[in-house]
Design a protein around this nucleic acid. Structure first.
Lengths: 227, 227
DNA sequence: GGCTGTGAAGACCTTCACAGCC
DNA sequence: GGCTGTGAAGGTCTTCACAGCC
């Protein structure tokens, strides 16, 4: 398990979601070819992605859906539940809390912080909004992942406090580049940037087979292929 | 202007955002080295990205901030405004409408659709929620981009109708893979997938310099570097 | 015969390094 | 001297193709 690309991890995540759907439909086995078709990637890619972590299939037979789900959950660290804190009790935070899929997948939002005195202390989606004064203390008390949903101007300062409190994973919704220590993992969701990518695709429409990926290199085939 | 990777486009978008901030601060010129430092990429990468589209700098002097902004806006197709429709008047849609940055960047959400009879006809963030029955007609009347914010189960059917109505760009928030014709560009924002990437980073923490990018290949340095 | 696992080949992306212009 | 623009080199990711097991 040396160096596995971010693209591979994204695809594993995608495989897992599809396998779960298939399991719910009663499917018990699948080939790399079938899984690839559903993901918009290639059979060789599926097998290569899995091969970084072990051997999960049977030659001539394919993969057991249940076993592969179990393996992927192990690889992605989803056999435990993660404690998540939401920083910023705005519209994006509300959307996230309403998006109950999170809890189902193993991510529990257990704390919410805001700087607005009018919000602090209020009940909000089954949680009490806490003052950001208490943030460091609460984060140290067992938060694994922080979701940053504050205005861009405030994001870097908030992130510094979050990493200072020992949190090593951040999901960032602020449209800004964050500087964090090497030991901290950051993923940014930037909707304006995605729209600009669509704008580019529209003005450069070649009207032929093409792929507009949301990601760089490994990007291809990850998010979606529109080919 | 042959084949430009998705990674390059993402970086151009990032350059543009940073340049706008600098322009607002009164900065008038910049070198590839400075821009790269702010984006977490390399000077050579900045110059190579720009070189696909022309020559915008002056040797020995660097780039004019204003001219580069203008050039990037042209490349990304941001010199015009885009008409956007939101499909699904739920929490995610509300967050998007509240996120006024969109309009500022050239994307105007001008229509909202939903299937819920209780919502149809209601005023909502300055828009009237329309029945999805009227969707095709409204989309044909000049919508460039559709934002899909419906449950995963409904997404593929909705997307088929959207593409059938001639829309060629989709921003998808449903956690599912979409099948669309080759002529349609799709970008998917999947928060569950991002969280799973963070989960993987946490369980594989090597405590050394590392980069967790959100994107595949080109991914590196795009979204954010956390090094 | 069917399908996986994997080294090798190929494609793509980034970095290097320097010629060329200011 | 400083910095861009770019061919060439280097690295990474994907695809190919086949050996190996069921």
């Amino acid at each position: 398990m040396k160096k596995v690309s971010a693209s591979t991890i994204e695809r594993l995540s995608m495989y897992l979601h599809l396998l779960r759907e298939m399991a719910a439909d009663g499917v018990t086995k699948i080939s790399s070819e079938e899984l690839a078709a559903k993901c918009g990637t290639s059979a060789a890619q599926v097998r290569k992605d899995l091969s970084f972590f072990g051997t999960f299939g049977k030659r001539g037979l394919g993969y057991s859906v249940d076993e592969l789900i179990k393996a992927l959950r192990g690889i992605l660290g989803l056999e435990r539940r993660w404690r998540v804190a939401l920083v910023g009790a705005g519209k994006i935070g509300a959307a996230l809390l309403a998006y109950q899929d999170f809890a189902r997948q193993g991510f529990d939002i257990v704390a919410v912080f805001d700087v607005d005195p009018k919000k602090i202390g209020k009940e909000w989606h089954d949680l009490t909004i806490q003052s950001d004064d208490q943030m460091e203390l609460a984060l140290r008390a067992g938060i694994d992942i922080a979701i940053v949903a504050v205005p861009a101007e405030a994001a870097q300062a908030v992130v510094k406090r979050i990493t200072g409190a020992g949190v090593r994973a951040i999901l960032n919704f602020a449209p800004t580049k964050l500087n964090v220590p090497d030991t901290v993992a950051v993923k940014t969701v930037n909707m304006a940037m995605e729209l600009e990518g669509l704008s580019y695709a529209l003005v450069n429409d070649t009207r032929g087979p093409r792929t507009v990926n949301t990601r760089p290199a490994a990007s291809a085939g990850m998010r979606d292929s529109n080919g």
